[in-house]
Write a protein that binds this DNA or RNA. Sequence first.
RNA 1: UCCCCUGUAGCUCAAUCGGUAGAGCGGCGGACUGUUAAUCCGUAGGUUGUUGGUUCGAGUCCAACCGGGGGAGCCA
Length: 469
Amino acid sequence: MNALRPEDRIAGLLARRDFGARVVLHGWVRTKRDSKGGFSFVELNDGSSLAGVQVVADGSLENYESEVLHLTTGASVRVEGELRESPGKGQAVEVLAASLEVLGTVENPDTYPMQKKRHSMEYLREVAHLRPRTNTFGAVARVRNRMARATHDFFQSRGFLYVNTPVITASDCEGAGEMFRVTTFDLANVPRGADGRPDFAEDFFGRETSLTVSGQLEGETHACALTNIYTFGPTFRAENSNTSRHLSEFWMIEPEMAFCDIEGDMNLAEEYIRHLFRTVLDDCPEDMEFFGKWIDGTVVDTLTHIADSPFERLTYTEAVELLKRSGEAFEYPVEWGADLQSEHERWLTEKHVGRPVILRDYPRDIKAFYMRQNDDGKTVAAMDVLVPRIGEIIGGSQREERRDVLERRMRETGLDPETYWWYLDLRRYGTVPHAGFGLGFERAVQFVTGLGNIRDVIPFPRAPKSADF
RNA sequence: UCCCCUGUAGCUCAAUCGGUAGAGCGGCGGACUGUUAAUCCGUAGGUUGUUGGUUCGAGUCCAACCGGGGGAGCCA
């Protein structure tokens, strides 16, 4: 029994018109409609497309009374039959079963969590092992997959090397939030030094280690040798964030380009996002139409619009001026030097321009140490891509390539240059201007699908107090 | 972590002022029909999140805890 080929899957079958052909198909029952007139309609889905195929099972099947009539949503079957033009509405083709083998019944139909009805997203999250069997989560899985492939296509076609940066890191401060510790210590009996603190020299790696919050610093090492690279891997943040757009474990794409400045960084970010949207619109029209109909009526138009038009670009300073002049009654005042609040970002993307906005040149005091100092002495060459509804989808910057400036900045922000010796070496030996950014993959999927909660665009969401499955 | 809302049947929800726990969907049984979220009739299904408190009496009021949602902060 080999893996099914695309042409043997339901999506392939639905495209065929060679009526009369003998076909074999496999899938899970979505609905069944019986006719005591002697036959049943069994709708099968195998995840290859949103649409399923209607199987006509008539009373002549030897197991019609004993098995077919008792099929319920969720049962798995193998069908052999004939491809026919469908006389019914809603589908062009159907399969008249010559045999219908039940591979797996649903043991307790009254408590099977997936019913032939709409379920709430909150409920489906509690049955994450079965939710991919729904229309919504099947569509999310296909779109997510297509976006992952589009990511590799985009960077590969531009000569970027895919680099795998470590998941376990010893960088104790990457400037991006709380980290999950990695240890093999028996937590009930942690070795301690004379000062009473855990003695990490005794731990597995002989030092304190954590799960990565970003592959950027390691990515820079390869950009400073191979020129253009990107990472695409899991990222972990132990922040106690309870929102619809944060996860404790998420996937991030981080390109890093040598011989590239902040302008090039923004150009690439914009191209990349538009490539993602265009690809999904072109290749997943059925799933996108579904999201438009059931999740968010505006997604298709919004994506089309964004794919076809340039992003708005503003400096942080210009954005602050706009916000101050907006006449909007914000809960938090807008002040140069302070981070923009959610309400400010939303006003900019949703009300002011109505599409993505790239903000650049932020005050250096609210940004990370590695961002390149601008000549004004006050700002750094940082950029954020903000989109309506989600907010920040990309954060990036031109990196500080001047060793003395970088080292000074590290000291100012309380970091010990010693621990970043290898990062500083990149500036010591053949330093080059370089830039990069990080895109939150789930936020991109969330934006594309229109789903309201980021926990519904990753198969098994991890969030504070939530690591089921 | 903070603010607000919320937890009742497998699911989505109702239950007036504190007074016998209800419906739709789903399941099961039947009827009917080339059906499409099929339709119609019948039927089973409950420790009202947990613990404690107030009360003659608590799904309802109070407290703590646990879970869920929305918003904020942190960020991608």
